[in-house]
Each structure stands twice: as C-alpha cells, then as structure tokens.
Amino acid sequence: MLTKRIIPCLDVTAGRVVKGVNFVGLRDAGDPVEIARRYDIQGADELTFLDITATSDGRDLILYIIEDVASQVFIPLTVGGGVRQVSDVRRLLNAGADKVSMNSSAVANPDLVSDASAHYGSQCIVVAIDAKQTPSGTWEVFTHGGRTATGIDVVAWAKEVTERGAGEILLTSMNRDGSKDGFDLELTAAVSKAVSVPVIASGGVGNLQHLVDGITEGHADAVLAASIFHYGEFTVGQAKEYMAAQGIPVRI
C-alpha cells in the first residue's frame, strides 16, 4: 500500500538552517547537511528546503547546500523559494533537487508552470499555495510570503496549475501557520478533492494528532511540518509510530 509521507521542512538562509515564526526572530538551527542527515536517519520520507534569502548572492548558496545534501542523503529533496524562471528550475535540479516548488512566480506567470513541467516533467514541479480564508468561507491565494493578496480562489488556482502540469500541490494555511492549532482541514479536503495530483498539507501542526487529522480528515497525501521536529518536541520516528497506531500506512 502507498504510504503517507512525512516531510520535515527546513528554512535556509546564508547557508544555515534557521527557525522562527513568520520570518521574525530567526535563530540558527544548524548545518543543513547535518540536519538533513538526522531527519533521514529518523525516517523522513522527503525533505523540503525553503530558501528564505533575499539577496541574489545568498541565493547561489542554496545550490551548494543542495549539492552537499544530495551527495549524502538519498531521499527525495524539494527546493522552493525564489524560483522565477525555467533556468532556475534547471539549476536546482542540476544541483540535486528532485522537485522544485514555485509560488509567487507561478501566480505572476502561470506559463512558468506549463513550461517547466513540459521541459522537466510534472513529477518535479510543485506549486506551493499560501491560502487565507475569506469572510465568505472560501480561500484566497496570497503571494510574496503572504504579504500580497491576489483575489484568486485557491481551489480554482489548484485546478489550473494541475491542468498546466504541476505534479503536486504544497498547500499552506496562512491562518494556521505558526498557530499550533492543526491544519485547516476544510481547506485541505477541498483542494485534495478538486485535484488529481498529491496534496501536501502544511501550516499549523502542533502535535502528532494533527498529522493524523491532516490525512484522515484533510485527505492529504503527505504532511509537512517544521517546528515540532526542529525544536526536538518529536522525532519523525515518533510521528510515524503514532500515525501507524492510528491505522495510517507509513514507512517505518
């Protein structure tokens, strides 16, 4: 049986993994290769690296980091942040990324999704969607790290990008991100039902039951979390044991 994936997310800047809430109060969390190796040993199914560097100098650093990690950690690696054109996708794949995630640039130029998936295959193109609930109960796509409203409906956007060739959706609830209240299950279920590609739930995990809920109630194919793993509250192995005990197929 296909197992549900657990994906630790690493925020990277200036060659280091950092942790913080909404880019505020960033603290050094260590060496990317070391952390990646630790999560691999714990049984992570994939790793996602998010490049939160603003300068172009720093941007090249993530290439070296991915090269380093890919030479020592043999599980799938997704890289996102600052992907603006097809040549960025190529550079990241050449550095050792298996999938590349795009967000703001996909909204600004949806052809980027079509072009990148036509060139490199849907399997390596992830579209990240930052979603905020509207007063009417639907969800709106936000870009630029959640600062810019777009007026685009999340479910419609998820459908469009998969039609354009996105192979996976990384769905983050802005309302829940950093809240530790659990995933927005209604949002996750709405998107998961609307598209035929895997959906990764993100934003809001505070305990292990939240991971279970994301899959049983949100119908997510994978769950992504950062802080519960970074702060050492739980290991990936503990998360998997808990999920397995709740009847969710996981790779142990």
Binding site: M1, L2, T3, D45, Q123, E168, V197, I215, D221, R251
Partner: peptide, 17 residues
C-alpha cells in the same frame, strides 16, 4: 477508492512496498 476513501492519484508518487 483507496482504503481511506480518497481517489487514487496518478502519478503514483511516494513510498510503497
């Protein structure tokens, strides 16, 4: 339908036995 009642996704992506 998969065991949890959701549709099968294609591509088949992830870890399987």
């Amino acid at each position: 339908k998969q065991a949890d009642g959701s549709d099968f996704k294609v591509p088949h992506m992830g870890w399987n036995q």
